[in-house]
Simulated assay, not measured.
Amino acid sequence: MRIGFIGTGNMALAIIGGIIKNGLVKAGDIIAFDKSEENLKKAVDNFGIVGTRNNIETVKEASVLFLAVKPQFYEEVIEEIKEAVSDSQLIITIAPGKTLKWLEEKFARELKIIRTMPNTPALVGAGITAVTPNKNVTPKDLDLAMDIFNTFGSGEVISENLMDAVVSVASSSPAYVFMMIEAMADAAVLDGMPRAQAYKFAASAVYGSAKMVLETGKHPASLKDMVCSPAGTTIEAVKVLEKEGFRSSLIEAMAACSKKAREL
């Protein structure tokens, strides 16, 4: 099996790194092309994969093909490669806004396509990828795709109508969390803590809290109540967050994110 990538940006590199680290295939069985010579050289030098001369060569040599270019370039790339794609190939997309219907119309024939939406924690092996196969994808194809996604985090099959929600709750949300960590660290610095130490404490608290949600199975509100002692420091902070619209700000931001994803 050879896995091909059209585009070698950060997300492609995260996927490639996970595949190689977990031994799903060898580096020499991963091929890629990028119009940016710098990006392609980085991928080849860092991972030992095989660089190709163009997109068509990548398509012809790959059994699994990732379209890892930005959404605005999808139509151009599909127009270029659609005649070279074979019926047996598994095509995996990672672009927001590009629905299965849109993809099928652009390829203009019956193909095996899986629409996905990963997120940047994939760069550290902690990503979560939403997965929606079209009707031509077999259970064996889907198992193979899930094996790939599990090398850099985990995969979750969802109905396609939820994909825009995934963009806001998982794909874009690391930015919100980074902003929160930065603000938490700023407050700790204001209280006299060295900045490097402040980032470590803030990030560790967020990491541990997320792990508690995933591993205890308890409702986040219940876990919050565990921290809030009567007349204590935490409930005082929670009161300020509620007054300043912490929850509503997040909800409104995510709604705007989902709306933008639908417009792409």
Rank of each mutant, 00 (worst) to 15 (best):
W102Q: 14
L103S: 09
L103G: 08
F107Q: 10
L111W: 09
K112L: 13
K112N: 14
T116M: 12
M117T: 04
L123D: 03
G125I: 12
G125P: 11
A126W: 03
G127N: 04
T129W: 06
N134P: 12
K135R: 14
T138W: 10
K140H: 10
L142I: 08
D143G: 07
A145V: 06
A145W: 09
M146Q: 10
D147H: 03
I148Y: 01
N150F: 08
F152P: 01
G153A: 11
E156Q: 13
V157G: 05
V157W: 00
I158G: 01
I158V: 15
S159W: 00
N161H: 05
M163I: 13
M163R: 03
D164V: 09
A165Q: 01
V166Y: 01
V166I: 06
F178Q: 07
I181N: 02
V189A: 04
L190R: 12
G192F: 12
G192N: 14
M193A: 09
M193I: 15
M193E: 07
P194F: 12
P194A: 12
A196F: 09
Q197R: 12
A198R: 00
Y199W: 07
K200E: 15
A202S: 08
A203V: 04
A205M: 01
A205R: 00
V206N: 00
G208D: 10
S209I: 05
A210L: 15
L214I: 06
K218C: 06
H219A: 10
P220M: 13
A221E: 14
S222V: 15
L223N: 00
K224C: 13
D225Q: 11
C228L: 11
C228W: 04
T233P: 05
T234G: 10
I235M: 05
I235A: 01
I235S: 03
I235P: 02
I235T: 10
A237P: 07
V240A: 15
L241S: 05
E242Y: 05
G245H: 05
